[in-house]
Design a protein around this nucleic acid. Structure first.
Length: 543
DNA sequence: ACTCTGTCAACAGACGGG
DNA sequence: GCCCGTCC
DNA sequence: ACCTGTTGACAGAG
């Protein structure tokens, strides 16, 4: 869509994500032999994000688009393995950065600095001050900003969520706008991409519940993924079976396939059985080193994982010989039963999540389903509201066939010989098993996160765009942040013009026909065309 | 040889003058 | 239009 | 104290 089509529209934007991007992108060369660094004021406070936000907001307003910025609250208390992975990655980057600094390797410094960019509380507060002075509304989400953006759209307070992050659709935002970063100098491809949630569901032929499951399968953030299952396969599987539970059940008939399902996705019972099997395999291989029987899933991909393996080896080599073997036995980076911080974190995080989700008030679920089903109308309306609620979930979970433990085709088990040498490792693992009786499959937690995310109901939020507070802006930008007075004044002029014309444009869009050059019309809400099929490809096709 | 998948690494702004 | 230096 | 999507090159499986 052309920019002009969105004149007068309200767009909810995830501020934290924008800030993050600005901090990474807006950097200055610091002269010869120095790494590029974020812009700062005299006190050394970061200003790149201020610069970026100020410019972009003025540009949006000048185009007649009314932004509302939504800030993150507390992170959701889940993200078990993912969280641990990120922490590890971060620590690694930190280490590498220091090494690079010591060596004076500029390229490496920049690379690792980028990986460590973080939006601090203060950064966000600074931007809130800026936005309020600009007369632009700010919403503070209780949890994830994307979820709150989606609620604003669903509740009619905003026309669309403006973000690149596909998660808003999983949160059931009615519309999403991408590529909202049109620039003043016209480069090629200035189009804004609009994605309509109801149409998307209609086109790919899924209910919202199925769509959420699809996103989880594709690896939406909060969970591990099933190896070999990407977008295409995930869609195929969901269409074929209807839910993750049904897919798992189907996969459980083939040991080879079922091996790919991450431990965290299994219920406690199946999971501990699998672990018992792995343990037996590992021990058998340990004591039987001359006579190793190759496992089918054993080949580690040298190129991909060699790095990680090295690290693991450095740290654990002599402590625990089971680790490398276990690593080989699973395709995941971190064996779930390995006595590392990772597995501990995972279980505690999940326990916390399980405990807290009960407290989440009955916000979203009803609103979501109702809105979606009313918009879908034709195709799948009857099913959407009821299809996947608790009953199906639990029922299906119970039906999953546990993996066969005893018949090991490849392992010659000689239990008697194993015991004395490896008893310590075994004890370690069994201690973990205790906590794991409470284990809830990861994808179920993720599902809850998408469907019952903590939000402020849209009806409780009032949005207002007011005249900018010129004095406050000058004080903040010029005096505090050290911006050039000339530029600021110029920008403020633009801002006032844009804010002033907002009302006019809005009236125009109500009472007048739109400018001639626009061939579509703004209010067009195309009904789901029964014939239009190619759109299904649009979602994944990069084009 | 060809297609479909998955994985990895690299990368991300906006303005204005020339 | 595109390229490139600059923003703090 | 957490924080990501896209792209293009590439490898492996069917």
């Amino acid at each position: 869509m052309e920019v002009e089509s969105y004149m007068g529209r309200i767009v909810a934007i995830d501020a934290s994500m924008a800030l993050y991007q600005f901090l990474i992108a807006i950097r200055a060369q610091g002269g010869e032999g120095t790494a590029a660094a974020v812009l700062t004021n005299a006190e050394g406070e970061q200003t790149s994000h201020i610069q970026g936000m100020f410019n972009r907001t003025i540009r949006l307003l000048s185009a007649g688009i009314k932004p509302v910025y939504v800030f993150d609250g507390k992170p959701p208390n889940m993200k078990g393995g993912e969280l641990a992975k990120r922490q590890a990655k971060r620590a690694e980057a930190q280490k590498k950065l220091e090494e690079a600094r010591a060596k004076g390797d500029i390229e490496a410094i920049e690379k690792h600095e980028g990986a460590l960019v973080k939006v601090s509380k203060k950064d966000a507060e600074d931007v809130k001050v800026l936005l309020r002075a600009m007369g632009v509304p700010v919403v503070e989400a209780p949890c994830e900003a994307e979820a709150q953006c989606a609620e604003l759209v669903r509740g009619g307070k905003a026309y669309a969520a403006g973000t690149e992050d596909m998660d808003v659709l999983t949160f059931a935002a009615t519309r999403q706008l991408r590529k909202l970063t049109f620039s003043s100098s016209k480069k090629a491809d200035q189009r804004i991409v609009e994605i309509n949630h109801a149409r998307l569901l209609n086109d790919i032929g899924l209910t919202n519940d199925q769509f959420v499951d699809l996103c989880i399968l594709c690896g939406c953030d909060y969970t591990n993924r099933i190896d070999k299952v990407g977008p295409k396969t995930a869609l195929k599987l969901i269409k074929q079976h209807g839910s993750i539970e049904a897919i798992l059940k189907s996969m459980s008939t083939s040991p080879k396939e079922y091996d790919r399902v991450p431990d965290e996705w299994l219920d406690a019972d199946t999971r501990s059985k699998r672990k018992a099997k792995r343990r037996a395999q590992a021990l058998a291989r340990l004591t039987n080193t001359e006579n190793r029987v190759p496992l089918e899933t054993t080949k580690p991909k040298e190129d991909n994982n060699a790095h990680h393996q090295d690290i693991d080896n450095k740290q654990q080599q002599d402590k625990n010989k089971i680790q490398p073997l276990a690593f080989a036995a699973t395709t995941n980076e971190i064996p779930a039963f390995a006595p590392t911080t990772q597995s501990v974190n995972t279980s505690t995080a999940e326990a916390t999540f399980a405990a807290t989700t009960n407290e989440i008030p009955a916000f979203a679920p009803t609103t979501q389903s109702v809105n979606i089903s009313t918009e879908i109308e034709a195709t799948s309306a009857p099913t959407t509201t009821e299809i996947v609620q608790q009953p199906l979930m639990t029922e299906a979970t119970e039906n999953i066939i546990p993996m066969e433990v005893d018949e090991d085709e490849f392992i010659p088990v000689k239990t008697a010989e194993l015991k004395e040498s490896e008893s310590t490792e075994i004890e370690l693992e069994e201690q973990n098993d205790e906590d794991e009786s409470k284990h809830v499959p990861e994808y179920i937690g993720a599902r809850k996160l998408f469907k019952e995310h903590e939000i402020i109901p849209a009806k409780d939020i009032q949005l207002k765009w007011t005249k900018p507070d010129e004095a406050a802006l000058r004080a903040f930008l010029i005096d505090k942040m050290g911006f050039a007075a000339e530029r600021v004044d110029g920008a403020i002029k633009k801002l006032i013009t844009a804010q002033g014309s907002l009302k006019q444009q809005r009236m125009d869009s109500f009472f007048k026909v739109l400018p001639k050059k626009v061939d579509g019309n703004v209010n067009k809400r195309p009904p789901p065309p029964a014939s239009k099929k190619p759109a299904a490809a649009k979602k994944k096709k990069t084009r």
